[in-house]
Every structure is written in structure tokens, then in C-alpha cells.
Write a protein that binds this DNA or RNA. Structure first.
Lengths: 329, 329
DNA sequence: AGCGGGAATGTTAACGTTCCCCTACTGAAC
DNA sequence: GTTCAGTAGGGGAACGTTAACATTCCCGCT
């Protein structure tokens, strides 16, 4: 900036003002400054700016996995909502591990973000403390935590699955299995499984068809393997709810390989409304969690808090939508 | 740090050393300092550290889309390779738009990253200039640019598709179509299409079955739509190469909905070796671009450059692998 | 006792911005 | 002619850390 100031014949302070598009710089001066900057190949230094102004244009975000369309959609929504303000997303992934999340949160807070968005509502005590003391807006997503740290944008994974169980029961199906959600690490997955168990019990049905699919992320292949085990051990199963659409699609392919009709012999449902659920033949019954809306709502909330339009902690509920498709008709 | 220094009875400089795990701090002092820091709820300020030391622990990365398993794998590989060094990834996505890429690159360079990894080898002149003058290692990936800016980790998209065309020709198929790659914006997609055209001409075959799939990202649904158009207009087509596995799977589902055998009536191939290609029934012939290896190689290269083990610009070629599966047998 | 050397720690200034408080000038109102 | 408000711009210090250099201390050796 000192170099630019020299070339443009002004003080460094004026150069700074020109870049911040503050008022009190005349248009001619500003133009001269921006031209000089371009000529000199100057690139603004956000590091120094953030240090001096004690505020940053970062928003930190933690997600379990990069390679998951649902979370990617949430980040996409966030990114879109924050772009207008020139807020940049600092993304980290936890690999479905709350210990890794703790490390990651500390790393991210070192950058002094202006806000932090985390996936899920379960954290290590230390991570919780870090978030509480960070002095910035904290938003928990994809869950409805019992004791929120700050703001919440999410839904009850358990309640969403209950709706799916009720759907099958209305169709007269009673021997219903659940694939996945066995790993503690995936808290949303195990919440879905717990919701399945509770819903089955509420309907007075036997909960004897829980199939493990291993540690997250649960892929299509693991869904197929789990479905194979289910068919081998409990062939009289009528319907299968999978922890995600990916495993549901895997389960579907296993049926196709064995020549078992879906629907007909087995009804299958997933979770997440991934692209594949709509395109698969048969299309997959699923639950749309409005992943992108979670991101856009979180972004809007961040702007509201930063601008002082939002005072106390906000609770923005999402209502997942049951999508009945060919695989359960 | 001043507060911690007071509590621990040392100077701020010693506190700084304790956090940098430099040698010359006695173990007792270090323990006292870390304890004091924990008690005070101190979180290290990377912003100030980066400003003063004039180096950062950021690596900037641009990818076309968050929601693409191939690029997510590359980022995953990068992330894994850089984690040991505490290097954090600063991710931005360009939405397949080189103008957006230019804006993004400038934004990212403002953070003074230690290196930058970009997807693709085609950039706006200004973006190119920014990268050349950034004074940090630049790595172009997923492509083999004619005039690389710095380092390259990639492969020729055109050459990879040539291998696929040759595979079909060896099977005696001659009426081969290509779906996608019509949008300039997706440079890798259009390179694949150009490779298809060149390979067909080299084989002396007619290039009269190019089906547009619209602007990227090309989804499963668009693959299905394009396949529908192909079947309607040129039903005597024998084989279809799609710009990615997602569109290939979409094409497959369109055949299934119409009761047309794959393989048999139509052979189908994709690109990218996405999970779905292996799991689909029939499994999809595809090309494995070793997405994750691109990331791990780029990460290793960055460390080599930063440590002075790599002098000139490196060219690390990737050799994509043709995977013949059920959809083309 | 005196000296050399290495490990542990301290002091000062600086990284590139921006906050805060000023000054100079212009033009309009009285 | 004086006052006053408003606009454009400047000067100096400070954000929290660390590079560079300086100092202290302890130990072993002659």
C-alpha cells in the first residue's frame, strides 16, 4: 500500500480507504489508486487487514465428509448465501469422528473466523468449551441438540424415520428391517436407527431386523452387502429402511442381482434425496432433508447476527419431506 | 501470549517458542506454559503468526464443483497429504466458470497461501498473470496444459477417451455416440469430446452422433434425457460414451425404463470410476482417473517444493485406467 | 580460577493493514 | 466577513505474533 500511495501521490490511509470502498475518497483519487494497484500487481493482504481490524471474513464450517452430496449441498447453500458479503468458507471435515472434530475446531478457531457452523449436536466437552468461549456465533446443523451451544438449523433425524416406518405400516407391512446406523461415530445415522427402533415399538412391532453396515461413510457397496446378509438370514422381510440413499441403492442392486422384485418382494427406502434416488429404476422412496436450505438458512442467520438483526439464539427447524416413490409402491 | 507469559513467569517470546515446539524451551517451562494457556482458554492466533512470519499454513485449492465425487476425492487426497504439516486447505469452487475462477483466485491469493492448486489448465489472462506473479508454487491438475504455469499433476482427457473408442472398435462396434462435453465451460468435458472426435476420425468412423447434455455439472437426469434423444433419433447406435459416470448411469436407466438391453442393444461407458459405476446393474465400463492420487501427488509435490527438494517445475503424469465392466461386454 | 560453549531465555522491532484523531479546503448560510 | 458543516485526506499507533540478535546461566575443561 505504501508503494501504491507513492505512485498515486496519496497516503497509505487513502489507499486503504479506496480498497474498502469507504465514502471519503474522491472518484478520481480512487480510480488512480486502483489503476496503480493493478499496474504494480498488488494483491490486498487479508491477513494484515484481519489482524488490525480484529474481525475476519472467514466463516468456519465442519462437515463429516467432503464426499457426501448432502453435506456438499449444505456447504453450497452456505457459500451462496455468504458470497454477497465476501465471506469465505473455511472448510474442514471430521471424518465422522468427534475427536477429530475437536482438533479441527481448534485449528479453525485459530483463524479467528467471524462465525462457525458445525454439523451435528454432539461434541467432546473440550470442543464444546472452545465453541462456547469463541465469542462468535455458533450454528449447529443437521440435528436438534438437547442443549444447543448457540443457534440451530436442523431437524430430528429420529422423527423423520418415524414417518417412514408409519408409511410402511399404513401399507400393511410389519416385518421391517433397518440397515446401517450401527456406528456410534455417525451420530445422525444412529439417531435415525434409534428413531426406527422407537417407531417400531410404538407400533407394537418386533425390532429384530437391525443390520449393521459398518463404520461411516456407508457406501453403496456396503448397502449391497448388508442387504445380502438380510436376504440370507431373514428372507421373509417385507420392507427395508436404509440409513441413506446410497446404501438403499446398494440394497436395490443386490435385489436386482438376485432377481428379487423391488417393490413386490421387498420395499426399499433411503434417506437424503440424493440424485440417484430419483433416477434409479425403480426410483427410491426417501426423505428430503432440504440440505441446501440448511445452508442458506444458516448463511442468512449469520448475516442477521453479524448485522445485529438477531439477538438471542435462534432455532430454525427444518421439516423433512417424505417422498414416496416406486421402490415402495 | 503476554497474559500467559505473566502467569507462567516467562517472556512472550518463550511462550511463542513453546507453541512452535521449537527445541530450545525446557520441558518444564513448556509444560507450565501450555497449562497456563489451557487455563486461560487461550487460542493461538494464526492471523498474527502468518503476518509476522510472512508465511502461511494455507494451501489454496480451486475445484469446479463441491458436489462431484472425483474432485472431492482429489481434495481428500490433498487434505490427507497436507495434514501432517498442519497445512489447512482453503477451498473455493468455480462452478465450471473461468471468470469465476479468476475472481476466486484473487480472493484466495489475498490470504497469502503457501501454494495454490487449481483444477484445469485453461484460465483467463488475468488469472494466469495473478498465478504467475503470486510467488508461490502453482499446481495445475486434471489436465496436461500446453503451457503450464508451474507444476502439473494430470493426464490428457482426450487420450483417455481414445482408449475407450479403441475398445469399442476392437469389439466390432462402429456406430458410437458421445453424450456431453458440449459446453465450453467444462474444459475437461470438452477435451473428452474432442478426444472422441479425433479417435473416431483416426479409426475412419463417422462422427455423427454427438449428443448435447447442457451446461455442467451434468447430472444423472441429463444423461437420461440425452440418451432418450439418442434412442429416438438414432436408434441404430451401438455404443455410447458418456462424459461422466453420472450421465452414463442416467443413460443406463433410460434404457432400463424402455426395456432396451445393456449390453446387447446398447453398450454404455462412462468416465471417472465413481462408486456407482461398480455397483450399478449392469456395472459400468469406465475410466479410472485416480482422483485421489492426483491429490496425494500434489500434496507430496507441495511439501517437496516447500522443503526445497524440488527445484524446477514438475510434471507428474497420471495414467488413467480403462475398466471394462458388464455394460460393454 | 578462568574460560569456552551450548542451552535457555529475553529485548526490540517489524509484518501490512486500519482505528482514531487531525487538518485543509470548499461552499453555503447568516 | 464570519461561522459552520461537510468532504477529502493525513499522521501515528496498534492489532498479536516472531525474526534477529543479545544475554544469562550452567557445566566441564585446562
Amino acid at each position: 500500500m505504501i508503494d501504491i500511495a507513492r505512485v498515486a501521490g496519496v497516503s497509505p490511509m487513502t489507499v486503504s480507504r479506496a480498497f474498502k470502498s469507504e465514502g471519503s475518497v474522491s472518484e478520481t483519487t480512487r480510480a488512480a489508486i486502483l489503476q496503480a494497484a493493478e499496474d504494480l500487481g498488488y494483491v490486498f493482504d487479508s491477513t494484515a487487514s484481519n489482524l488490525r481490524s480484529q474481525r475476519s471474513d472467514f466463516v468456519a464450517v465442519t462437515i463429516p465428509s467432503l464426499n457426501n452430496a448432502n453435506f456438499a449441498d449444505t456447504v453450497g447453500g452456505l457459500s451462496e448465501g455468504l458470497k454477497a458479503r465476501q465471506l469465505q468458507i473455511l472448510l474442514g471435515y471430521t471424518n465422522y469422528d468427534i475427536l477429530e472434530e475437536e482438533r479441527l475446531i481448534e485449528q479453525l478457531l485459530r483463524r479467528r473466523p467471524g462465525a462457525i457452523v458445525v454439523t451435528g449436536g454432539r461434541h467432546t466437552p473440550r470442543a464444546r468449551r472452545l465453541l462456547e468461549n469463541a465469542g462468535i456465533p455458533v450454528i449447529e446443523t443437521w440435528d436438534l441438540p438437547e442443549a444447543p451451544i448457540g443457534h440451530v438449523v436442523g431437524f430430528s433425524n429420529a422423527a423423520a424415520v418415524r414417518g417412514m416406518v408409519d408409511h410402511f405400516v399404513r401399507q400393511g407391512l410389519t416385518r421391517i428391517a433397518f440397515i446401517g446406523g450401527d456406528a456410534d461415530r455417525d451420530t445422525r445415522g444412529s439417531d435415525r436407527r434409534a428413531g426406527f427402533v422407537a417407531a417400531m415399538q410404538a407400533q407394537g412391532l418386533a425390532v429384530d431386523r437391525l443390520i449393521a453396515a459398518g463404520p461411516p461413510p456407508i457406501s453403496m457397496r456396503e448397502g449391497a452387502t448388508a442387504m445380502g446378509r438380510l436376504i440370507d438370514t431373514m428372507p421373509d422381510t417385507q420392507a427395508v429402511i436404509c440409513v441413506s440413499d446410497l446404501s438403499a441403492f446398494g440394497a436395490l442392486t443386490e435385489c436386482q442381482r438376485r432377481g428379487l422384485a423391488v417393490p413386490g418382494r421387498y420395499s426399499i427406502a433411503g434417506f437424503g434425496d440424493y440424485d440417484i434416488a430419483a433416477v434409479a429404476v425403480p426410483s427410491l422412496t426417501t426423505i428430503n432433508p432440504f440440505s441446501r436450505a440448511i445452508g442458506t438458512k444458516a448463511a442468512a442467520l449469520i448475516l442477521d447476527v453479524l448485522d445485529g438483526r438477531q439477538d438471542g439464539p435462534a432455532l430454525l427447524p427444518i421439516t423433512p419431506e417424505l417422498l414416496i416413490r416406486e421402490s415402495s409402491r
